[in-house]
Amino acid sequence: MIAGLSSELKKKIAEVVARYPKKEAAILPVLHLIQRETGAIGADEERWVAGLLEIRPIKVREVVTFYTMYHQKPVGRFHIQVCSNLPCSLMGGEKVIDHLQRRLGIKIGETTPDQRFTLSEVECLGACEQAPCMMINFDYYGDLTPEKIDGLLKGLD
């Protein structure tokens, strides 16, 4: 059992599970909802979800590790995901990554010691007309330059 899932969340989870003829099909949306509240899907969360959906915990682990958006350990408060795919790199995506690494003092895949930022490199985000682009949590930012990035980072509370 996970400590402290809000009753509101549990209600939402029940609603989502009811959308499918088989409970197991709700695993992706349920994991999204839980991760939003807990920050990561650890072993406790896996067991809880397995119990809820009446599947073995290994099935949950398979899903958590297959899809890139689930975290087994929490990421920083601001998760910066930079596209390193072709359309972005044609427009200077590599420079964006270099600038962020220097500015945050961390490398791709790392989190700042104050748990404020995690920097990740991701594949195409589907916003190539605004290349180079990145996401900060779930918000998209495009046409990035070092100056624009500095402004964005300053604007985060």
Binding site: N85, L86, P87, E123, C124, G126, A127, C128, E129
Partner: peptide, 9 residues
Amino acid sequence: GEPGTFKDR
């Protein structure tokens, strides 16, 4: 997810 594609968005 096809790199370069953003029309459905």
